[in-house]
Design a protein around this nucleic acid. Structure first.
Lengths: 155, 155
DNA sequence: TGACATCAGTTGCATTTGAAACTACCTCGG
DNA sequence: CCGAGGTAGTTTCAAATGCAACTGATGTCA
């Protein structure tokens, strides 16, 4: 005699991997967004744009989208915002009038320089309590999962 | 002579754990939402409410919120929707007029019975390509991260 | 060429979200 | 009792999101 009509054992949401993954990721993202919002007035999309431009120098919006796992609409809006704040410079491509190269301005580079150490701190905080091996496995697992579940502009 | 003004090595977004976590989680969630949307017309919040009610029988909204990592607003809206579809029953508490106990209706139980196997399939899909040990480590890591980053209604 | 698919990027619009305000109710100290 | 403060749950409102439609430009293939 059991309450559940099903033959299957109870379904425990708290043990359900997609749920656990979602909760962990969203908590980290929330904290992350709070910190960057407070410190620099940057949203996560804006932060990602700055991050990839800091690394690659100049990219067209399409490339930013590909490298930040965001769709082009989100990139477009983040770029507009960053431009309004003077963190970005935009230059038309000589050969292809559809393309616009985006790069950090001087001011943007300054912000980028401040942003990166804070990111490393946050990462350290996430990683605390994990051994090196656990961290390695976590990274492998996340990579496999992301591969198995492709998506255009996700997040 | 280097391009980066900073002493630190390049910051690689694609290796940044909070980013990787976010991307993996969002891709899974998106697929999950698509499937449940297509199969049952359920959103993730609605799905979560059904899941915990299927397990615990009856709960007040506040408890649903606590057990699904959602805030009370999201729960309120999911409940309204599920009620409109006839999947939920709602009963006022005898002693405390603020409380309303929520439970799956007969129809809701039927849906729940269909929902759970599909969840297990999706979980299996996420887990494919991970060894048992890797899975165990992943779960530990996600638990530690979620602990280290508390949050009221997150996700 | 020139019609047509395709691409970069933006905008419009409907949906989702969440913080804060709000309603209704309960509790507890005096 | 009664009033201050707390809780359950809903509503309001502004912001974030995402799809689809759009603009303008390029590629392509007959």
């Amino acid at each position: 005699m059991q309450l559940m009509s099903s033959e299957a054992p109870d379904f425990r949401l708290e043990d359900f991997l997609p749920y656990r993954l979602s909760v962990a990721a969203n908590r980290v993202s929330r904290r992350f967004a709070d910190r960057y919002g407070a410190a620099f007035g940057l949203s996560i999309p804006e932060w990602r744009v700055m991050a990839v431009l800091g690394r690659f120098g100049r990219l067209p919006a399409r490339e930013i989208a590909a490298r930040t796992a965001m769709d082009k609409v989100k990139v477009s809006r983040a770029v507009r915002q960053l431009q309004a704040r003077g963190f970005l410079e935009r230059a038309a491509d000589a050969a292809d009038a559809r393309l616009h190269w985006l790069a950090l301005s001087k001011a943007g580079q300054g912000v980028h320089a401040a942003i990166v150490p804070m990111a490393r701190e946050m990462e350290a905080e996430v990683v605390q309590g994990l051994t090196t091996e656990e961290l390695a496995v976590l990274n492998v697992a996340l990579g496999r999962i992301a591969e198995r579940f492709p998506g255009e502009g996700v997040d």
